[in-house]
Design a protein around this nucleic acid. Structure first.
Lengths: 330, 330
DNA sequence: ATGAAAGCGCTAACAG
DNA sequence: CTGTTAGCGCTTTCAT
């Protein structure tokens, strides 16, 4: 490892060692073995911390690896071992806070389990199809977790015949391990909360139905419909993000929350607490973590049970919802 | 591809084809070649859409690939080609909206360029060191983009001697392509905005300095300090998320915004617009995209210029900031 | 247009 | 404890 100028360097002459690729010939395990005067097998052993290496040998090999700036190829290792130690996670609309929290949960456990996580973001039907197809068409990871996206029968059939280890989060399919919540019940919980506060005219704000294969919002709407059907002194938003929109709109139009209007959201994203938004809490990070954990089990060849696991929902009453003061109907 | 029961199936008997790994022996290119009665070379050619394959042959090979449910190994392809077509992106606090937007920007261009993106989330110094080390210690990707994390001289030296293609976003290092904004100026812009509104006593809310190697907030603070130094009729928050916290706190304590208190944030995350938060806009998605684009250039062996690129900042006045009404000092 | 064969960089089984 | 060697599954000359 040569000394590299840093920090104290004259900044006038912009050092640019990294701005262009130095075509340093990659040194491989054979080269290390050769210059250390041992076999590749031995180098491999020190690489994998095998106990069967004389301390002296190990030291020498390590020294050579350092000197040659050797970086073992994960690719070669994977190919040889027969597993990629990589998992793909397919998410829709990565920037949505609820999605991000799930993603973070998944990455965290995957990282701990020694997997790299390739994330694929889906924002159009085209991307969805392309990425879903890639999952079964080529062998690029040890498994995949699909978040919030619905698989059609073709996809499913392909996953099966290709036997691609798969776990789903916030969406389900027959025969696939999935981690979900009961969104219909969630819709009811939200509506009931408002009703218990004396509201009788409750509005709903959400995605236009069937917009993009998302199933959650529609089901929440269903829960709302089942619980009530008249218009607003309170609003139930299909997601916290939409609830924030409602909050802003209310303020803009001079309505104060919760005095004039109660608002309840859904998800309990991080900023909901920050803003005092009442909401239906669902274990976002946890769902991603569990999905990942189940995928790992699957990859290990374990049987995942129960196939469908349901996480609990709860209402979190904060400051955006309050008793209906004006004329609480009996 | 065998027919797989789906949908119409009796759900009482939970089908569980995917809940356990079917040990379907992987079919490889040799097997395809053998059963199609051609050489592996030919199969490889149809795989890569080489024009040098008789139409008839191609059709037959494709038919066999389907029938055998052949999935080419990306690993083997990469090893053979000598490139992973994978990029690592290192981000701190993945769930922060500003980070997520950058990530989305990067993933988007990387995806278009045919790269898989492995994301590594850093939430502790330990993770930071481990992931940073992994970048140089092993060869697992064609390059890396580092977001908002500071590299010390050791890391830098390692990146260089290992000649790991690297691009940085929202952070900089000598000799490395970076995409940044002028946070000091950002701090000034925010403060000036408030001052132009008649405010003279302006508070700052931000991270405790030097918490975790983050540089941005501190620099914004510096910009604020340089512009002013007395206490509050208005508040400048180091990030939009923190500004939202201020909004909530204000409301909770009965202060109305902007009547009693003006608030300006920093970043212009998606929900800022939603909530009418005044803020300093910085091109978040764009920064991620540019970082990714530059990394791609680097990987292609191109010279990246200028090494340091600065994206523009602008103030976005929304409804959370207003003229200081009470007693605007002259 | 197609086949044969030499890698790519590692792991692991086997010998010693 | 260490060396040898056969793969892992593909791409890619080089022949033909």
């Amino acid at each position: 490892m040569e000394a590299v100028p840093y920090g104290g360097t004259d900044l006038a002459t912009e050092p640019e060692e990294v701005s262009r690729l130095k075509s340093t010939r990659r040194v491989n395990i054979a080269e290390v073995a050769a210059t250390a005067g041992v076999s590749v097998g031995t180098v491999s052993r020190v690489l994998n911390e095998s106990p069967n290496v004389r301390e002296h040998t190990r030291t020498r090999v390590i020294e050579v690896m350092k000197r040659l700036n050797y970086r073992p190829s994960r690719l070669a290792e994977s190919l040889s071992r027969g597993q990629t130690r990589t998992v793909v996670i397919l998410v829709p609309f990565l920037t949505r806070p609820s999605v991000t929290e799930r993603l973070a949960g998944a990455i965290s456990v995957l990282d701990n389990e020694g997997f790299d996580t390739v994330v694929r973001n889906v924002e159009t039907p085209g991307q969805r199809d392309r990425h879903l197809a890639a999952l079964t068409t080529r062998h690029e990871a040890d498994g995949a977790v699909v978040v919030s996206l619905r698989l059609n029968s073709e996809h499913l059939a392909a996953m099966r015949s290709g036997s691609v280890p798969l776990a789903m989060v916030d969406t389900e399919a027959p025969g696939v391990p999935c981690t979900v919540v009961d969104d219909i019940r969630g819709g009811s919980l939200a509506t009931e909360h408002l009703i218990s506060l004396g509201h009788r005219r409750i509005g709903f704000v959400g995605d236009s139905p069937d917009e993009f294969g998302f199933v959650s919002t529609r089901r929440r709407l269903l829960g709302y419909r089942r619980t009530l059907s008249a218009p607003p002194t309170a609003i139930f938003a299909g997601s916290d993000t939409q609830a924030l929109g409602v909050l802003a709109a209310a303020e803009k139009s001079g309505h104060s929350v919760p005095a004039d209007l109660s608002v309840i959201g859904y998800d309990d994203i991080e900023s909901a607490a920050l803003l005092g938004l009442s909401t239906i809490h669902q274990p976002l990070t946890e769902s991603g973590a569990r999905g990942a954990r189940r995928l790992c089990a699957l990859i290990r060849g374990q049987l995942v049970r129960p196939l469908r696991e349901e996480l609990p929902l709860s209402v979190v009453a904060r400051t955006s919802s309050a008793m209906y003061a004006v004329a609480g109907a009996a």
